Amino acid sequence: MYLRPVQFADSPIERDGEVTRLAGGLLWFSAYELIAVARGARIAQTTLAVSELRAFAEALPAPQAERLYGLAEHIASPRAPIVAGERTLRLDQPLVMGILNRTPDSFSDGGRHIDDDGAAASAGFDMGAAGASIIDIGGESTRPGAEAVWEGDEVKRVVPVIERLSASGTPISIDTRKAAVMEAALAAGAHIVNDVAALAWDERALPVVAKAACPVVLMHSPDPRSGPHGGTGYADPLIEVFDWLEQRIAAVTAAGVERARILIDPGIGFGKSMQHNLALLNGLALFHALGCPIVLGASRKRLIGALSNEAPAYQRLGGSIALALRGAELGAQILRVHDVPETVQALRVWRGMKDAALIGQRG
């Protein structure tokens, strides 16, 4: 059984018992979509008002009732803040993670910052000044068909930039699936590991993160051991990605990583068709039932081009903003983007509208 928050409300004022706060953030909702699955197929799908959930659960067998109570608790529980050195990042409103690629072949901006450590660090400083709360630094492209990078070269690409940025107190995540790169990046001052393989590609990655006790982003991909774009398709992408992440969270916590330090990413564009991606974006709120902060990385992705006359990556700003705001509307805590100033501005306007609705302003 699964619960997805639906019917979002502008304000909880004078609606006690009718609405529930989503993950301790800026959003409230008045109903759940309840989905029942048996043998891989949906057998029931209905909408329950928030006030009806307990009565519904009490009529179920105990294991199913406990499942629903657990999902509802995960949906409502505030997310633990991210501690990044001397900075503490609260997750009660959407934050921007700026993408800084140190690669010659990334799909969007490959080669832009590959040759000059100082210029790359300056680009990171600029994103922070523009409002990015985290700078996500990567030294290996994950685009389809990209060649694997030797871990030594990856370390040489990312460590000099991390050292420069960390000296200023900038919260940094390292985008890698290699344990050796994680170790070098954390030693250089990175605070978060962002792994497209959810710590499943390198057998040493999970022990490294557990020992470091750092926050980690577990991203879904169909078959992480064969690369982020493997897999053979989905019958029900939303449910199958949820199940995969739920199982991965269980495995990672069993290995010693605290659940409070886990963030999840549904992996938009990784081993998924446009229809799969759209299903995940429309159903994104389901992932709150995992009880972990959601990272949404849809910036400049191929699906934007597919929906806009094959616009190339550098002409996908409008679509990227649309997807970022969709993520904010559904409660994503971190938006991973290339276009930081524009996304920050869009979120500030969105936040202004939310604040006005919350205090009951009219006109």
Rank of each mutant, 00 (worst) to 15 (best):
E147F: 09
L325S: 01
S133M: 11
H220G: 04
R112Y: 13
P5G: 10
R90Y: 01
L317M: 15
A213W: 12
T47G: 15
L48T: 15
G283L: 09
R204Q: 15
P222R: 01
R157D: 03
Y69W: 11
F287G: 12
D109I: 10
H113D: 11
G189Q: 08
G139Y: 01
E203V: 14
D355V: 11
Q345H: 06
G70Y: 10
P171A: 06
D339M: 09
R164S: 13
I99R: 00
P171M: 09
A31N: 09
L91D: 01
M127F: 02
I135S: 00
A251W: 04
G17A: 13
L186P: 04
L95M: 05
T142N: 09
L53R: 14
A36M: 13
A62Y: 08
T20V: 08
F270Y: 05
G138V: 00
D126W: 06
S133H: 03
Q315M: 12
W244C: 11
G98F: 00
A285D: 07
R259D: 13
H288V: 10
R79F: 03
A119T: 09
N309F: 14
G305K: 04
L199T: 09
F270A: 02
M127W: 00
D126L: 03
I162N: 01
G131C: 10
R157N: 03
V37P: 01
S166Q: 13
D223V: 11
G269I: 03
Y234T: 04
P222W: 02
W350V: 04
P61M: 12
L60H: 05
A130G: 05
I137Y: 04
L307A: 15
G145T: 12
E86N: 14
Q64M: 11
G152E: 14
N101K: 08
A205H: 00
L186M: 10
A212S: 10
P104G: 10
I294L: 13
